[in-house]
């Protein structure tokens, strides 16, 4: 299935900003993090279809996945 993956802040370094990627059905966010060699402890916020998500969430065909490290502002 196709998943639109968007990376932000330091996760873009040596990777990409945005990519359509192919994963088998049943893939979780954790699987994507492993695939991209992103250490889960560095993850701050995850979004699936613009909603808050946790790493155990299963992705669906056409999902929008946004991955941020620990960041903040205000």
């Amino acid at each position: 299935m196709q998943v639109q993956v968007r990376l932000y802040a330091t996760f873009r370094n040596d990777r990409f900003n945005e990519q359509m990627r192919d994963y088998p059905p049943g893939t979780t966010i954790k699987n994507v993090l492993d695939d991209l060699k992103i250490e889960e402890s560095l993850v701050g916020t995850l979004f699936v279809d613009f909603k808050y998500a946790t790493s155990d969430q299963e992705l669906h065909e056409g999902a929008n996945l946004g991955i941020f490290p620990v960041v903040g502002g205000g």
């Binding site: 941020f68 960041v71 205000g74």
Partner: peptide, 10 residues
């Protein structure tokens, strides 16, 4: 300004 992309994503 890191928040531009976070709020856009949310």
């Amino acid at each position: 300004n890191i928040l531009i992309n976070i709020l856009n994503e949310a």
